[in-house]
Nucleic acid binder design. Structure first.
Length: 312
DNA sequence: TCCCAGGCCATGT
DNA sequence: ACATGGCATGGG
């Protein structure tokens, strides 16, 4: 029995191919051949298909979700409450008119409000390796430790694996789990330890969802866990804790800060001190409240337009 | 072949 | 405080 709902959004959306457990999007709309996004969100198998530029068709395998809840949840999940025209301010538009024209093509990109725990584990896999390997790790973790579920959609069966529970990863042998982490045993150990922390309550991600926590405190708290540095901490804040003011700085961000914004700090290596310096610099031309949201748009624009990378 | 990829950390100066 | 190398694999 499928639960079905059509949701109207109040703005244009461009749903793109999912990364990790459903981070971001690439759905090319057109010719009636709509692709769909399938995932398990909050333990519920779900399929989302974009049927117009501002309408989503949501199909769930569970009747336990009320229509109203799905509606609210999906709108929040796609951060549809964020006003696109606030991401880049007028001052930015005046100062960087040429760049602004280029990034406009990416304004429909949505950052997902994802599960904090899943985001934490996922980004712990994203260290110094290519995007395809990151995806592979997440996929293997789900296939090996998640629960298999299927949902029927348009007459065909879609197989899904849930993201493994904290308890399941907490009980895993790091050496065995390392087959899922690119054979990196240190990473496997860190992931198991983090899962144990969530399972036994030592890591309370719920309390970290408090939007009044200063960004620096939030970052430092997350960094107490082995395997989480400034960058990963900021990613968890941005994608998992709804902190759109968090501004993760990776190799690509450092590159565009140097190239597009003429940052001298970006020319030297990304030491912790430089990281904080770049973070402060970025907030002088980005809206501090939405620095990470703007940064993510710049990030994808840089990768696609300048680096000519295919993977989203 | 070499360098880099959505980094982090231990070690040496 | 900063520099360096290890971790690990795949793609350009």
């Amino acid at each position: 029995m499928l639960y079905h709902e059509v949701i109207k959004l109040n703005k244009t959306i461009n749903v793109k191919q999912s990364l990790f457990s459903g981070q971001s999007f690439l759905w090319e709309i057109g010719n009636g051949n709509y692709e769909y996004y399938s995932s398990i969100i909050d333990n519920v198998p779900i399929i989302i298909r974009q049927i117009s530029e501002n309408t989503l068709e949501v199909v769930s395998g569970s009747k336990s979700i009320e229509s109203l809840l799905i509606n609210d949840f999906i709108i929040s999940y796609f951060s549809n409450d964020i006003e696109t025209n606030l991401i880049f301010q007028e001052s930015f538009k005046r100062r960087y008119p040429d760049l602004y024209r280029i990034i406009m093509g990416y304004f429909s990109l949505r950052i997902l409000r994802q599960n904090p725990y899943e985001t934490m584990i996922s980004f712990m896999c994203a260290q110094g390796i290519g995007m395809h390997l990151i995806r592979k790790q997440i996929s293997m973790l789900k296939n090996n430790y998640g629960e298999k579920t299927s949902i029927t959609f348009s007459g065909k069966e879609v197989i899904l694996y849930s993201f493994p529970t904290p308890e399941r990863l907490a009980a895993a042998d790091p050496l065995v789990l390392s087959t899922c982490t690119n054979n990196n045993k240190t990473r496997a150990t860190n992931i198991v330890r983090a899962a144990q922390g969530v399972a036994d309550g030592r890591i309370n991600l719920q309390t970290l969802c408090d939007p009044t926590i200063p960004l620096a405190d939030l970052r430092n708290t997350l960094c107490l866990n082995p395997g989480i540095g400034f960058k990963i901490a900021d990613c968890i804040a941005l994608f998992g804790l709804g902190r759109f003011d968090a501004f993760p700085i990776d190799t690509h961000v450092r590159q565009y800060l140097g190239s597009w914004f003429n940052s001298k700090t970006a020319l030297s290596s990304l030491t912790p001190a430089n990281y904080l310096m770049l973070d402060a610099e970025a907030r002088t031309f980005l809206n501090p409240e939405l620095a990470g949201y703007g940064g993510h748009i710049l990030f994808h624009c840089w990768r696609k337009e300048v680096k000519k990378l295919q993977s989203f």
